[in-house]
């Protein structure tokens, strides 16, 4: 479980996150949704410690990330997997080497086992055929999938995904959603997924946090989302066609 308390982030007088508190639960798919520019990426990066918030607390099982010693942070991070909005694959390494990298760095497996594990992760995102290509030789959607494979290589306890299915076709998108949901259940991961795709939210979302212009507008279970007492939430969800069809 991850609890965020009173998190604020200011960039040179520009308040991007304003006093946000939220809870992300273990074994379910937590989603952060909101319009473009509402501060989702900044929030996610604060949660993993890549951006230092101006104030607030980030508690991993009750321990505050911001006051931990470097060694503890390092240990915690070995239990994290993260998918960046821009994939962030290492472009000097092939897809397979990218997925093997966390294993090379931190696992005690031998080379054969590491390769097998990496191939297994690539298989799960349907990318085994591209294992020996470089990031510059594959499409944006394939990069996304490779980055997901890399993020799950070490069986993380916490999985952070920034827009895992933007730029993917509906079919692949659904595949990725289902993959994320199933590993979350299977390994009891605390997953935090940033998205602005209502399809994903309806598909796999369980606990939803809605950000609007740096403020947490709403938080709760997905089932209650459409009855939320907030103009911004209503506007956001009814702008997508998920509800119109039904």
């Amino acid at each position: 479980m991850i609890e965020v308390r009173n998190l604020s982030k200011e960039f040179e007088d520009h308040l991007v996150l304003n006093n946000i508190s939220a809870t992300f639960h273990k074994g379910i798919v937590n989603m952060i949704i909101g319009k473009s520019g509402s501060g989702k990426t900044v929030f996610l990066k604060c949660m993993v410690g890549l951006i230092r918030p101006t104030s607030g607390e980030i508690l991993y099982e009750g321990r505050n990330l911001l006051t931990m010693k470097t060694k503890e942070v390092k240990r915690l991070r070995r239990e994290m997997g993260m998918l960046f909005q821009g994939s962030a694959l290492f472009d000097s390494k092939t897809v397979l080497e990218n997925v093997m990298f966390p294993l090379d760095m931190f696992s005690r497996m031998n080379k054969k086992e590491r390769q097998k594990r990496a191939e297994f992760c690539l298989e799960r995102v349907n990318l085994l055929d591209a294992a020996h290509l470089y990031p510059s030789e594959i499409s944006g959607g394939m990069m996304k999938r490779a980055a997901i494979a890399r993020a799950i290589a070490l069986n993380p306890k916490y999985l952070f995904c920034d827009e895992p299915n933007s730029g993917l076709d509906p079919q692949t998108s659904q595949l990725i959603d289902e993959l994320l949901a199933s590993i979350t259940k299977e390994f009891e991961i605390t997953s935090v997924i940033v998205t602005h795709d209502m399809n994903s939210v309806m598909n796999i979302g369980e606990h939803i946090v809605f950000l609007n212009e740096g403020v947490k507008e709403w938080e709760g279970p997905k089932e209650q989302l459409k009855d939320a007492d907030s103009e911004a939430v209503k506007k956001f969800i009814f702008a997508s066609d998920v509800f119109k069809k039904k």
Binding site: L50, R77, M82, F84, D91
Partner: peptide
Amino acid sequence: GTMRITEQIDALEVMGVN
């Protein structure tokens, strides 16, 4: 520098790599 702007360095940090 390219690794920095394409978030590859952030990716290393999140994994717990120095």
